[in-house]
Amino acid sequence: MAPMLFAGIAVRDHAAAVPWYEKFFGRPASFEATETESVWGLAEHGWVYVVERPADAGHALLTIMVDDLDATVADVDGRGIKPERRESYDNGARKVLYQDPDGNEISYAWAPRD
């Protein structure tokens, strides 16, 4: 079996969080797992789910690697979501960090391939 990733982001209020994630990802959820859990497929074997778990909200750290960071950031900017900060690393890698309304950190990043 190929490796798969199913990464979760806890939020205080699922219904309130979903519109932000639809805007961030640029589309509705791929499916609703339950009344309080929505799932976005981001790659063939990679999904991100947003789940209502108030006690755990605001602690996620998630980085999504992309081939074209500038285009991805421009798309997100075009949907009205601005980054919290940008980082550059000595090896040429770059990361753009966003925060959802609960304080979860979701980043897009690019790194040179060896």
Rank of each mutant, 00 (worst) to 15 (best):
V39E: 10
V18Q: 10
Y49G: 01
A43F: 04
W47G: 06
F25L: 11
Y49K: 06
R53A: 11
G46P: 03
G46C: 13
P28S: 14
E22A: 02
W20P: 12
A16N: 03
A43T: 11
H45A: 10
D56Y: 01
W20E: 06
P19F: 02
F31P: 00
R27P: 02
A29F: 10
W47K: 12
T36E: 12
V48Y: 00
F31E: 01
P28I: 13
T34I: 08
V51L: 08
A55M: 10
E52C: 08
A17G: 09
V51F: 03
S38W: 15
P54I: 11
P19Y: 00
D56K: 11
V39C: 07
T34E: 10
E22K: 03
R53W: 03
H45L: 04
S38F: 14
E32S: 15
A33Q: 02
G41K: 11
R53E: 05
D56T: 12
G41V: 07
E37A: 14
V50Y: 02
E52R: 06
W47P: 03
R27T: 11
V39Q: 08
G26E: 11
P54Y: 05
E44N: 07
S38T: 11
E37N: 13
G46Q: 04
E35G: 15
A43V: 06
V51P: 00
V50F: 02
K23T: 13
K23M: 10
V39T: 11
D56L: 15
T36H: 09
G46V: 06
W40G: 09
T34M: 14
A17P: 09
D56P: 11
Y21D: 01
T34K: 13
F25R: 02
E32N: 15
V51A: 04
S30H: 02
A29K: 00
S38P: 04
P28T: 12
T34R: 15
P19I: 01
W40P: 04
E35Y: 14
V18H: 02
V50I: 12
V39F: 10
D56Q: 10
P54K: 03
K23Q: 14
A29H: 01
V18K: 04
F24I: 05
E32L: 15
K23I: 05
D56H: 13
P54F: 01
R53S: 12
A33F: 05
G41R: 12
V48N: 08
F24Q: 05
F25M: 08
Y49H: 07
A16L: 12
E44W: 00
V48A: 07
D56M: 14
E35N: 15
E44A: 08
H45K: 06
H45F: 04
V50S: 01
F24T: 01
E37D: 08
E32P: 00
W47M: 14
R53D: 07
S38I: 09
P54E: 11
T36P: 06
W40F: 08
E22C: 10
K23L: 07
E52Y: 07
H45V: 09
E44Y: 00
S38A: 15
F24P: 02
G41S: 10
S30I: 03
D56N: 13
Y21I: 03
S38K: 09
K23D: 09
F31T: 04
A43I: 06
A16R: 08
E37H: 13
E32T: 12
L42S: 00
S38R: 10
E32K: 15
R53C: 10
V39I: 14
T34V: 12
F24W: 13
P54N: 07
V51M: 08
G41E: 12
A55S: 14
T36V: 14
V50H: 00
